[in-house]
Amino acid sequence: MILERSMIETIAAALSAHGLTLRGGFNFAGGEETPSGLSGGAARSVLLVGQAGAAPWPHFLRWKESQSQAVANPLDTWSREVIGGVANDFGARAVSPSDRPYLPFQQWAMRAEGLRPSPLGILMHPQYGLWHAYRGALLFEVEIALHEPRGVIHLCDTCVDKPCLKSCPVDAYSADGFAHETCLAHVRGQNGAPCRTGGCLDRNACPYGAAYCYPPQVQAFHMAAFAGL
């Protein structure tokens, strides 16, 4: 049995009603170790679910405001609820990037869309730049009818100045990787107000995908979650 493209388009439409986007997928190779599907058997395919820009934000806010009490990790909770509902409608198992043990979401995304990491670790998208994310995935115990991703230009290769590595006042990103504790201390500290209210300065310095840049309130929400504020 194969999940036909018409059904995949129906799934995409169901996700789009919540501002979410079907971000591609693939069939697992024979003999490849895979997570389990809905019935407990080995999954044979995966569809990635994510966002482009801040499209889910109004949907998420309406849901958040409808809750009778504060919800821990509200964006994750909303994403699980929405993607889980779609999964139930189409016979899939929904999984999340925050599930333990962690699933290889970044590797799945690279495989599904042909993307590569930017110097900040975020996958660089040829249209969305750094302004996209993955919110979950749908695992099926059947194969899906999808084409292999075409070759995608990696915009970071064309960027000479690399402003994403020059804008952070504490040089949180470098050739040595991400200095997590240095970044965290700065964001929480007296001089971290621009980051807390407007988001990561390095990320905002990237010239690509500007039309999809998250609004300041969305970036402030994510930064508060990162810093535990």
Rank of each mutant, 00 (worst) to 15 (best):
I8K: 02
P104Q: 05
L20A: 10
M124G: 02
G53W: 00
L20Y: 07
Q127A: 12
L130F: 04
Y102T: 14
G31K: 07
T158P: 09
R100Y: 15
A94D: 11
L115W: 06
P56T: 06
S16V: 09
D89G: 12
W57V: 01
H147R: 13
Y134R: 10
Y173Q: 11
A175H: 11
F90P: 00
C213E: 15
Y134I: 13
S6M: 07
A145M: 11
Q127S: 13
G209I: 03
P119C: 07
N88I: 01
G198Y: 04
V86Q: 04
G40Y: 06
D171S: 14
A13F: 03
G199F: 03
S174T: 12
R196V: 07
V46D: 04
S174P: 09
P207E: 10
H180M: 13
E32Q: 15
F60A: 02
A210S: 14
L47D: 01
Q219P: 05
L103F: 02
D202S: 14
G177A: 04
A225L: 05
C213W: 09
W57I: 00
C183I: 04
G19H: 00
T197G: 00
W108S: 01
R203D: 03
P119M: 07
P101G: 10
S66K: 10
L22H: 14
L138V: 04
E4T: 12
P216C: 06
P216R: 09
T77W: 00
E113N: 00
H132A: 04
Q107D: 14
A43W: 11
F26I: 11
E113T: 01
A87G: 04
E9L: 13
S174K: 06
P97M: 01
S98C: 08
L48M: 14
L201A: 10
G37A: 14
L75M: 15
G25P: 03
P194W: 08
P194D: 10
M124P: 08
L138D: 06
K162M: 11
A72N: 11
A72H: 12
G114L: 07
L184S: 07
A193H: 12
G50F: 05
